[in-house]
Nucleic acid binder design. Structure first.
Lengths: 143, 143
DNA sequence: TTAAACCCTCGACTATACTCTATGGCAAGG
DNA sequence: CCTTGCCATAGAGTATAGTCGAGGGTTTAA
């Protein structure tokens, strides 16, 4: 079974433009062409594109994804380097998740404030405090 | 207590350039200027900048952050809109976290593969499959 | 009072990741 | 055979989020 770029675009939720762009960036060296120069995708290609989107979705820059793909093209000799790339990336993901969770808690705190029965009062007070902070320092009130 | 842009940059881990850029984008309408036109930050300003980085770190585009800040400047009358913005954003964060977790599992699966005692064999096999997939479809072998 | 260290704006430049247009070749159905 | 639709490349354009340099005013400390 082989697929045209259009079919792959539908299957992967990537636009045709993006697929061609990725190819231009060296992310799809594994995609063969037919006699007419058309990209001809196989199932194993889809697997690799899936891996690429996995890495992209977790925030890996295309440059690094390219390194990983280069490793894949090189075969088993690059396993150690692939491990290094993915392990480093794994750490980055976890750190990022942690950071986001902390920030989410602060957003939840705000939501709690806005959802309180005396929200108007609290928000007004907050603004009064900010204004006072300006006035006390001889600054114009921007509110 | 007031702070210069340099001090704020140190405190917030944002560059001076970024702070000025944010101001230019309308994210810091609450920052007053002194007689010489210098930005003069108060503690309440730092609080708001903290909120901005919270939203930015969780992936909110500057355009939307600006809407939120505009709400804050408007006072208590915008509470409903702030709630709407933050609630929507909260959903987006959670969806994103879920997606990342799923992708992380796949990366972990790869790492497990590369860490297996017979990793070389498995990776070789994988590549053989991919090659066979090409050959079976009359395509050139890109590996 | 003057030099170093800051601050300002404006506008140009960079990086990343697409997105689209122009131009032209190939392919499948009527 | 020819039109419609899909494929190709090159290169320009867009969006987002900064980053920086030039030119010029301000503050501070020796």
């Amino acid at each position: 079974m082989t697929y045209t770029i259009k079919t792959v675009a539908e299957k992967t939720q990537l636009s045709i433009y993006t697929l061609r762009f990725y190819d231009k960036q060296g992310l799809l060296p594994f995609v063969s062409r037919n006699a007419a120069g058309y990209r001809t995708f196989t199932d194993s290609d889809l697997q690799l594109i899936h891996t690429i989107t996995c890495l992209k979705n977790t925030g890996m820059p295309l440059k690094i994804i390219r390194q990983y793909i280069d490793d894949v093209m090189q075969g088993p000799s690059s396993i150690a380097h692939r491990q290094q790339l993915l392990t480093t990336h794994r750490q980055a993901i976890l750190a990022q998740q942690q950071k986001i969770m902390n920030n989410l808690h602060e957003i939840d705190f705000k939501l709690q404030l806005y959802g309180a029965s005396n929200a108007v009062e609290l928000v007004t007070l907050e603004q009064q405090y900010a204004k006072a902070d300006k006035v006390a320092n001889g600054l114009a009130d921007p509110y």
